[in-house]
Design a protein around this nucleic acid. Structure first.
Lengths: 188, 188
DNA sequence: TTGCTTTTGGAATGATCGGTCAAAAAAGGA
DNA sequence: TCCTTTTTTGACCGATCATTCCAAAAGCAA
């Protein structure tokens, strides 16, 4: 049971996430990855298999973290609508870095089953949490009761994806805030 | 002034657009392009320069066409709100094929000035036309008069981008229709 | 036909790709 | 100290990349 240095796997994965977010899968070379992850080339292959497996792990970790962050904001306020608003505000705050989820869907669509499965899993978890809080806001009279909570959740995440594209396309902070406001307006 | 066979330049460009839409820039090889465009490899380089110039031409042609289609729908109805609705319905109709504009922004962000300039130009033309029709709908009492027309236009295109991501992620037609409905609801 | 131009296809360029190999170096436990 | 395991390094592999060169083929004008 010999213990040696053993670099931090999650830390390396985070560095890989950074590269993939910025350049996509095809645009990221193994050299770029190795350099950013600050590990030896062989360590990458020993630890993560190959570039594609590393990418899938990166997407899984990234969307898990993003989902957690979304849910934390959703549940972080006592009033449900405030939680929803906090989630939208976080999007504005973090819009400077591109979203790996959006990038991955854009690059591969539904052509890679294992990737689509990852997205589907994260999506369901996120949508369930959102629907719950939306229903609560509807009971409180803050969100239109005539709208199906699932449709509202889908709309929120559609709008979030659009805002992230807008940000990647150069939209200013004020611009994004305006988009967030109109999104909330749609569900009230 | 010798006239010879001379393949159709626009037709070849359309074929290239098809490849780039599906696989992005990095994911498209010159072999794939040459095969799809049905021209010799040398003709590609003689006519379009190199892969990057071809990509820029493809994006320019694509976003020009998309902008025209959007504007045609916007102006195709006598009632302004109906024009806006028609534009949103076209998104649902054509969502099966990925959008080269979204893909290009996602892949390169603002890192390539010539590409960013293309997007900016198409964006402005589109936004101007939309703002005009939105103001008209506001006068008719169909769109909330308290919202700045420019902000409404931005919101519509943000939502359109989100819907296209959703479609690429596997959203059904009904799903997309619901997103379109909620988008319109936001501005009324 | 004779010419000129355009298009084509194959071969070849050098660079870079993802991935492997083997040996050196480093680190901790004994 | 020595031993074991992990990590790094750099060379190396075949494949593929974008691009170029060149000669053959094809189309049109005369």
């Amino acid at each position: 049971m010999a213990r040696t240095k053993e670099f931090d796997r999650d830390e390396a994965l985070d560095a890989a996430i950074g590269v993939f977010r910025e350049h996509g899968y095809e645009g990221s070379s193994t050299d770029m990855l190795v350099r950013a992850m600050k590990i030896g080339r062989q360590s990458l292959y020993d630890t993560f298999g190959d570039k594609w497996k590393l990418y899938c792990l990166a997407v899984e970790r990234y969307s898990g973290g993003e989902t957690n962050a979304h849910i934390a904001k959703l549940r972080g306020e006592s009033r449900a609508l405030d939680g929803i608003r906090a989630m939208m505000e976080r999007i504005v705050e973090d819009a400077a870095q591109p979203c790996l989820g959006v990038s991955s869907i854009c690059e591969f669509g539904q052509t890679m089953p294992e990737l689509a499965a990852l997205h589907h899993a994260a999506d369901r978890r996120l949508k369930d949490a959102a629907r719950e809080r939306i229903a609560e806001a509807q009971l409180a009279g803050d969100v239109d009761k005539t709208l199906p909570a699932g449709a509202v959740a889908d709309f929120l995440f559609c709008s979030i994806a659009g805002m992230r594209i807008a940000a990647r396309g150069g939209a200013s902070r004020e611009h994004l805030q305006s988009l967030g406001r109109l999104t909330l307006r749609a569900i009230m």
